[in-house]
Simulated assay, not measured.
Amino acid sequence: MSGKGAPELSVQNVGDLKVAVVAAQWHEKVMDGLVDGALRALRDLGIEEAAPLRVPGSWELPVAARALAGRGYDAVVALGVVIRGGTPHFDYVCQGVTQGLTQVAVETGVPVGFGVLTCDTEEQALDRAGLDGSHEDKGHEAVTAAVATVAALRSVSGTRR
């Protein structure tokens, strides 16, 4: 299982944070699970939920995340799924999305939760989508990781972000 060795993150006193969620539309069932998990995580943390911004696909996540990072959010969570096909398209999209989201976080200083599934099969994606019967809930994990990063940065900087 890919989640083996994941840390147990405990985050408290973060109800004042503004967290944006941007989600792709491809692979509707998987995306519904990821979005539901992300919104549940926000509720669990006491953070006011905002409707996710939906973009066509994972490729569009970095530009949307960059726009949101510049609008006063403490963290941005990007959710998507790319499933391997028979061409190199998978590799290019995965690399571009990963580099793009990394660039957003580094350039803006706004933590970006990486909830983009890069799977060989649809079954693998469904198993990570937080649906009934899934072994993992990557939408929930992406929110928790982004918020935990904000909390860690707060602890060393003494500032809001």
Rank of each mutant, 00 (worst) to 15 (best):
R66A: 08
E122M: 11
S2K: 11
G80S: 10
A125F: 01
R40Q: 11
E49F: 06
V97N: 02
R66T: 07
A146D: 13
R43H: 07
L68Q: 04
L131Q: 02
G96R: 07
E107M: 09
A151D: 08
V19F: 04
L131F: 05
V93F: 03
R128E: 01
D91F: 13
A6R: 15
G3S: 14
L45F: 13
C94K: 08
A78V: 12
G46L: 14
T102C: 04
G37H: 08
A41N: 07
L131W: 03
E136L: 07
T108E: 05
A67I: 14
V106P: 00
R54S: 06
R54D: 03
V19N: 04
L39M: 15
L79S: 02
L126T: 08
A78D: 08
A65T: 14
S157W: 08
H27W: 07
T118L: 02
R128G: 01
G72H: 11
Y92M: 06
V104I: 12
H89V: 10
A129L: 06
V22Q: 05
G72L: 10
L39H: 05
G115V: 06
A51S: 14
D91Q: 11
A20R: 06
V63C: 02
L9K: 07
K18Y: 11
R40G: 04
A24P: 10
E8Y: 06
A142N: 08
G158Q: 13
A69R: 09
A50T: 15
P88K: 06
A146W: 14
A148K: 04
G85I: 15
A38M: 10
R128H: 11
E123Q: 13
S58D: 04
G100P: 05
T144D: 00
G80L: 08
L53V: 15
G33C: 06
S134I: 10
L117Q: 03
D44I: 08
G158V: 14
R71Q: 11
E107W: 07
E141N: 06
V143A: 01
A50S: 11
T118C: 09
L53T: 15
C119F: 05
H140L: 09
T159M: 06
G109H: 08
L39Y: 08
L131R: 03
V156A: 03
G139V: 03
T149N: 01
